[in-house]
């Protein structure tokens, strides 16, 4: 039984993403849009969390590439462009977007439907 469990645990799995330059442009635009929105709305936390996420994701993505957990099937400058777009644009962009959506939703609920916020013990 234990052998079966260990076998299952170490069974290789893969998550692949087929991308292209258009994809990189689209995610860069989304990330830039999120950052510009944070700047225009003077959302300090949004801007700071975007900036904080850059070294975090440079490390995570870089760690994956160095250890072989992550692989790009391209060489040359596109390899580095992909790394930069993913770690500096895409992932920090999602982080900042998720934060801004959460912040807006929570403030909206606290002002319009306070009973929902007051629900529960925590």
């Amino acid at each position: 039984m234990l052998d079966l469990l260990i076998d299952w645990l170490i069974t290789p799995a893969e998550i692949n993403r087929v991308v292209n330059v258009l994809y990189l442009i689209i995610v860069s635009c989304i990330a830039l849009g999120v950052l510009i929105t944070a700047i225009v709305t003077k959302n300090k936390n949004g801007i700071r969390i975007y900036l904080f996420s850059i070294p975090v994701w440079l490390f995570i993505e870089g760690f994956g590439l160095v250890t072989g957990l992550r692989e790009y099937d391209i060489n040359g400058p596109m390899f580095w462009i992909t790394y930069i777009v993913v770690a500096v644009g895409e992932d920090p962009g999602w982080v900042a977007l998720a934060y801004m959506v959460s912040e807006w939703s929570l403030k909206f609920l606290a002002n319009k439907y306070p009973n929902i916020i007051l629900f529960g013990k925590g």
Partner: peptide, 20 residues
Amino acid sequence: EFLLEPFEIQRHLTNMYYIG
């Protein structure tokens, strides 16, 4: 062609990842 030429980003993991 330049915009749409596909390349792949692969993530190799094991089922242990899901437990993690």
